[in-house]
């Protein structure tokens, strides 16, 4: 199976000092679900940001969907991200002055992509958000906000979903429910899911488990 993401000899450092991230080789395949964990400071968020194209490594190659993102222009990387990547944060990830619907549709403001209305209806239906769409994002509970963020990442039909501890704010029941829906949507869309979490109890749901401390040679 061909790689959706392939990293070769990637090196990243803040302020040109000692690198915080050095990865000789790492690849993800299509429709793969990956559980990424590691000690605090092992560079999990940094890796996600590099994959999202928000920052770039100083050395090495990152090939995503056949494109070398390290050498793209800023605008091209922004475009690439808005079309292909769904990003789910830990929390505080909604724009407070927009309604639930406006938050979910926000990526289309920047990407120029067409909304798949059937998918939108299905996503908000399955995530149980249909009755909340006209409320302000801040009026929802933390768990509901987390689901809005997931819906926002899913409606753009992303090839890759990057999730940074998306269940940290959820209690056990909500977490189970959230993961079930996330996995069902990921499977039906054929997206690649890279899921960062400290919560090892859920790792068995994923195809692959990666300890970043093992991959990141800076730490060894």
């Amino acid at each position: 199976m061909s790689s959706v993401i392939e990293i070769k000899d990637l090196s990243f450092s803040y302020n040109d000092t000692k690198p915080v991230l050095q990865i000789p080789h790492l690849a993800f395949t299509k429709s793969e679900t990956v559980f990424l964990f590691g000690a605090s400071g092992s560079g999990k968020t940094t890796l996600l940001e590099i994959l999202a194209g928000v920052i770039t490594g100083q050395k090495g190659e990152v090939e995503m969907l056949g494109q070398k993102t390290q050498h793209m222009s800023l605008t091209a990387r922004d475009q690439f991200r808005s079309k292909h990547i769904g990003y789910i944060f830990q929390q505080f990830n909604l724009i407070p002055y927009l309604s639930v619907r406006e938050n979910i549709l926000l990526p289309f403001t920047f990407s120029g992509k067409k909304l798949n209305q059937a998918l939108y209806d299905r996503v908000i239906g399955e995530l149980g958000l249909t009755v909340y769409v006209d409320q302000l994002a801040t009026e929802l509970s933390v768990g509901q906000q987390q689901r809005v963020a997931a819906a926002r990442a899913l409606v753009i039909e992303p090839d890759i979903i990057l999730a940074d501890e998306p269940t940290s704010a959820l209690d056990y029941d909500h977490r189970e429910n959230f993961l079930k829906i996330l996995f069902s949507l990921v499977k039906s869309q054929g997206s690649t899911l890279i899921f960062v979490s400290h919560d090892r109890s859920i790792q068995n749901l994923f195809d692959r488990h990666l300890n970043l401390s093992d991959i990141n040679v800076v730490r060894n």
Binding site: T75, D78, R81, S82, I95, P107, F110
Partner: peptide
């Protein structure tokens, strides 16, 4: 934070 969210959703600096 708000701007970072917008960027993560594909907003370029020019946006």
């Amino acid at each position: 934070r708000e701007m970072a969210i917008l960027r993560s959703l594909g907003a370029s600096f020019s946006h």
